[in-house]
């Protein structure tokens, strides 16, 4: 159902962001922040140019591959760590530690291992995205209420039925939350990788624009990426909320 209310907040955000942007422009001038209208016009023009598309495709491809690895690998590892208690306990602090370090410092290592180009970007993007997916999946599996499983046994479900009718619905909301965060972080990682020692992609265009002091292009690309990120996140968040509506009440799975 599309109500006025569901559109009000995002619209409000968009309007206030553009307003804020305009204010910044008035304060800082064209040298630092170009005005919204010309910048958006510039973005439109850039997207129409043939030489822009390979860069967009490069970033998009790197992001999609990294996302596939982060989601697929993350869920798989998370299932194993969640299902096997000791491995989970061994791995969790390492993962949390890895989550909170500046991963950019590891980028040179990845470059040395994978060489300049697409594989390094994919690896770096996946490195960012995979950790939340693993952590959320692991916790989802761990927190499955044992009573559900006992109820399943009492109803004489086959293992397959238990998996499909109990485990999947019980873990899906949490896992999806992990995927949503993994999505954002993969995008961040891919972009970050492109900002350093890259020869193609949106990040590369950003760095070239700095050298040329081309504020309009910097802003245009930043806006493009952000718009994509915000819209994708809003969609994922909507699904997330839907899934969580049917989720067990908070704390239900705990002893």
């Amino acid at each position: 159902m599309v109500s006025l209310r569901s559109w009000r907040d995002p619209l409000l955000v968009a309007i206030s962001l553009v307003a804020l942007w305009q204010v910044l422009h008035e304060l800082a001038g064209d040298v630092a922040v170009t005005a919204p209208a010309p910048t958006l016009a510039h973005l439109w023009e850039m997207i129409g140019q043939a030489r822009f598309l390979p860069h967009l495709r490069e970033t998009g491809l790197a992001f999609l591959q990294a996302l596939a690895i982060a989601c697929g690998g993350g869920v798989l590892i998370g299932l194993v760590l969640g299902g096997h208690k000791l491995s989970g306990e061994v791995a969790e602090p390492i993962l949390v530690g890895l989550y909170s370090i500046p991963k950019i410092t590891l980028y040179p290592v990845i470059l040395l291992l994978f060489g300049l180009g697409m594989p390094a970007k994919v690896a770096f993007g996946a490195l960012h995205g995979i950790i939340p997916v693993v952590l959320f999946t692991m916790n989802a599996v761990r927190n499955v209420n044992r009573t559900y499983l006992r109820a399943g046994r009492a109803m004489r479900l086959t293992p397959l039925q238990t998996g499909w009718h109990i485990l999947v619905p019980a873990t899906l909301p949490e896992i999806f939350s992990g995927l949503r965060i993994g999505f954002s972080l993969t995008l961040l990682g891919t972009m970050l990788g492109e900002l350093f020692a890259s020869q193609r992609g949106l990040g590369f265009l950003l760095m070239t624009a700095i050298d040329l002091h081309d504020v309009k292009t910097i802003l245009a690309i930043a806006v493009l990426i952000s718009t994509f990120a915000i819209i994708a996140n809003a969609a994922l968040l909507a699904i997330d909320k839907r899934l969580h509506r049917g989720a067990a009440p908070e704390g239900a799975g705990k002893p």
């Binding site: 040298v31 954002s184 700095i210 990426i225 996140n233």
Partner: peptide
Amino acid sequence: NPFLAAYYAIPHFAFYPLLIVI
């Protein structure tokens, strides 16, 4: 609230070049 919900979805490093210009 909507700002806060979307905030960490944005790859903020895209704005880093802008900060340097400023």
